[in-house]
Computed example of a mutant assay.
Amino acid sequence: MSCSSQCSLGLGGVLRTLSPFSKPWVFSLASEPFRARSSEEDESVDSFIRRRLGPEIAEYAIDPMCRGIYAGNSRELSVRSCFPPLYKCESEDGSIVRGMLWPSKGRQRPERRSKLSKRARDERWAAWSLRDGTSQLTDTLVTQLSEDPRVEVRVGSPCEAVTPTDGKLQVVTQGETIQADHVFSSLYAAALSSLLPDQLVELKAFLSSIPAVTVAVVNLEYSGHVLPAQGFGHLLPSSEDGKMLGVVYDSCAFPEHDRQDKPSTRLTVMMGGAWIRELVSEVGSDLNENALTSLAVKGVQDQLGIVDSPSRSITKVQRNCIPQYLVGHWQKLAGIHSLTEKTNLPLSYIGSSYQGASVNDCIYNAKLEVERVLSS
């Protein structure tokens, strides 16, 4: 396990005027508790932040943050679903500041304690990684579960259909048919929709209405230490550059992954997302990897002043990789769960399409759902 502890804006940053802001954040924070709360059941992240904290924070802080987390447009994403703590601060406490300082009783989400989560809190992790990459997580799950005599693991066996039958679910794969008492699906919502039978038309419609965006990811390695500044990375507001979302300074965030034989600098450039059309107009509809790499290298040169050519690059187009919680997402979830209960489907929805796109959220929500099913 590798971890990274990063500092936030800090008190000094709140009190000083930092570019591109025209005044210190403290003024926006001081006036926020006196702004009227909204009666809307949901609204866009951009609209919410503009109301509560002003247009500059919405455009230069929250807009790029949404691009970094969801590769999404803050003017379309739901504040209720993407940032539930902020939504609850206003709806329950009347203010973000008041809610953060004096939260309502019972608003904290239930903790699931473990040695690892305790270590993360104690060491104030801002991010974490795995020594052998993210695939180490799934590989270890397969290894550990395979050693349990109560568990059967299938890999390389894509699901072809999920059909209700006599109070159970019949799961058809390329190699077999399984009668399951209960199914926990971590598939993307639209993918799950395509596996369900036509008679569940309403449920399929809700599931397929949760979109996802495509992101081009370019990993660049440079010889030597070439970064002009240290940090986790930088994100770009959509007003500055639509097609390029941001750059992660991997060598700063997780130097443990750097090569050991000689000094190097690793960067990850992210492009597209909700702005995939702008990216297509730049490199072509086939999203050619060579064109994407050239665009990423130029972006690094323009934004970081790194004029050297990379010694190595890896470019991948991750299609439909990040679900988008658009305004009204909570209503889609309510419809999904209502129809599931109405039709007595022994089906649980976990994974990134529903209540959190990060790995942490997916693990946490999966645990909650398993506990709920076991206790019912």
Results as ranks from 00 to 15, higher is better:
Ser348Asp: 09
Asp361Gly: 08
Leu347Glu: 01
Val359Gly: 03
Ser353Asp: 08
Leu368Trp: 04
Ser352His: 14
Asp361Asn: 09
Gly356Ala: 09
Glu369Ile: 01
Cys362Asp: 10
Arg372His: 06
Tyr364Phe: 13
Ile350Asn: 09
Tyr349Ile: 00
Gly351His: 03
Ser375Gly: 07
Cys362Gly: 03
Ser375Asn: 13
Asn365Tyr: 15
Asp361Arg: 00
Ser358Trp: 09
Glu371Pro: 01
Ala357Lys: 12
Glu369Lys: 12
Leu374Met: 11
Val370Ile: 14
Ser348Lys: 04
Glu371Ile: 00
Ile363Lys: 11
Gly351Thr: 03
Asn360Phe: 13
Tyr349Asn: 05
Ser358Ala: 13
Asn360Pro: 06
Val373Tyr: 14
Arg372Asn: 11
Ile363His: 11
Lys367Trp: 12
Leu347Gly: 08
Ile363Val: 15
Ser348Asn: 10
Ser352Glu: 14
Asn365Ala: 14
Arg372Phe: 01
Gly356Cys: 08
Ala357Ile: 15
Val359Ser: 07
Tyr364His: 06
Ala366Met: 05
Gly356Glu: 10
Leu368Cys: 10
Asn360Ala: 13
Val359Pro: 04
Leu374Thr: 01
Ser353Val: 00
Tyr349Met: 04
Cys362Ala: 14
Tyr364Pro: 03
Tyr364Trp: 13
Cys362Thr: 09
Tyr354Lys: 01
Val370Pro: 10
Arg372Ala: 06
Ile350Gln: 05
Tyr349Arg: 02
Ala357Gly: 10
Asp361Val: 00
Tyr364Asp: 06
Cys362Gln: 11
Val373Lys: 07
Ala366Leu: 05
Tyr354Leu: 00
Ser375Gln: 13
Lys367Leu: 14
Asn365Arg: 14
Tyr349Cys: 02
Cys362Ile: 04
Leu368Met: 14
Gln355Phe: 07
Ser358Asn: 14
Ser348Leu: 02
Tyr364Gln: 02
Ile350Ser: 06
Val359Trp: 05
Ile350Cys: 13
Tyr349Ser: 04
Tyr364Val: 00
Val373Glu: 13
Tyr354Gly: 07
Tyr354Met: 03
Asn360Val: 11
Tyr364Leu: 07
Ile363Met: 15
Gly356Gln: 09
Ile363Pro: 05
Ser352Lys: 07
Tyr354Cys: 04
Cys362Met: 12
Tyr354Asp: 02
Leu347Thr: 03
Ser375Cys: 12
Ser375Thr: 09
Ile350Leu: 08
Ala366Arg: 04
Cys362Glu: 12
Ser348Trp: 07
Val373Met: 10
Gln355Arg: 14
Ser352Phe: 04
Glu369Leu: 09
Ser376Val: 02
Val373Pro: 05
Tyr349Ala: 02
Ala366Glu: 06
Leu347Asp: 08
Leu347Ser: 04
Ser353Trp: 03
Leu368Gly: 15
Ser358Tyr: 08
Tyr354Val: 01
Ser376Leu: 13
Ala357Arg: 09
Val370Gly: 11
Leu347Val: 02
Asn365Pro: 01
Leu347Cys: 05
Tyr354His: 09
Asn360Ile: 10
Leu368Thr: 03
Glu371Met: 00
Ile363Arg: 12
Ile350Pro: 08
Val373Asp: 11
Ser376Lys: 11
